[in-house]
């Protein structure tokens, strides 16, 4: 491979984050939600937007993607950001993947601070102040009229995005299918955000508010694998080699 001397547009690193593990000890039924709601009432702010991993070791059911999606929807409606599962069966892991969750391995116990009713003020401050990244993974096609918002990080779509659909992310946007709709990366003003796609047929792409429409993009990049990024306040598009 020829060395071009160009700076890599990204870096890959491993990094560990602390997540809260929610261990299910039965089915995700009414009783479970009632108990969960009770717990959340005790410390309403502590769990809000914290990354959650579901431990399915003792869970029963939840083996179909519909069940998993229902569970995720219920949890997310309680402002619990579920990011993955652990100790699931093969079926449960498959269901988790289709619900946009990652099956995780390992994990080490750490003390969950402020888990009791009297939440430490300073700790709470830190939770809300720290902008912990949370990528959003979408595995289904994004249909016309749908809008997907990754408000705390990257948005990864492992399918196509139809014309009339909208992807919005605080971080980068990756589309591993055709991008036919709109993609707006770095919406909080992050000029380092980028958009990557396997086939550019977008109606509009934007990074940190600077945009190009389909017309502006021209025919050179149409249906090509490209990345888009900002350079000196100009939105640049280039082919991915």
């Amino acid at each position: 491979m020829q060395h071009t001397g160009r700076v890599m547009p990204f870096q890959i690193r491993g990094r560990s984050f602390t997540a809260i593990v929610l261990e299910l000890t039965g089915a995700a039924d009414g009783e479970f939600y009632a108990a969960l709601d009770e717990k959340l009432k005790q410390a309403p702010h502590f769990f809000m937007n914290a990354p959650f991993v579901l431990d399915l070791d003792k869970a029963t059911g939840i083996a179909r993607s519909g069940d998993m999606m229902g569970l995720v929807r219920e949890l997310r409606s309680r402002k619990l950001s579920v990011i993955g599962v652990q100790n699931g069966t093969f079926e449960q892991n498959t269901a988790a993947l289709s619900a946009g969750l990652a099956p995780l391995q390992g994990g080490r116990e750490v003390r969950v601070e402020g888990e009791n009713a009297e939440v430490d003020e300073a700790f709470e401050e830190e939770i809300s102040g720290s902008e912990e990244a949370a990528a959003v993974l979408v595995t289904e096609p994004v249909r016309s009229g749908q809008r997907i918002f990754a408000d705390r990080g990257d948005l990864v779509v492992v399918s196509s995005v139809s014309s009339g659909a909208e992807l919005i992310a605080q971080g980068n946007i990756h589309v591993y299918g055709s991008l036919r709709g709109r993609a707006l990366a770095g919406v909080n003003g992050d000029a380092r955000a980028r958009i990557f796609c396997q086939s550019l047929e977008a109606e509009l792409i934007a990074i940190a508010g600077l945009y190009k429409t389909s017309d502006d993009l021209g025919p050179d990049f149409e249906r090509k694998r490209v990345q888009a990024y900002l350079e000196d306040d100009v939105l640049r598009v280039e082919l991915l080699k």
Binding site: R143, S144, G145, S163, A165
Partner: peptide, 13 residues
């Protein structure tokens, strides 16, 4: 086709 796509989104939600 685009309208059908919209309907598919509604069918799944």
């Amino acid at each position: 086709v685009r309208d059908s796509d919209r309907i598919l989104g509604l069918l799944s939600s």
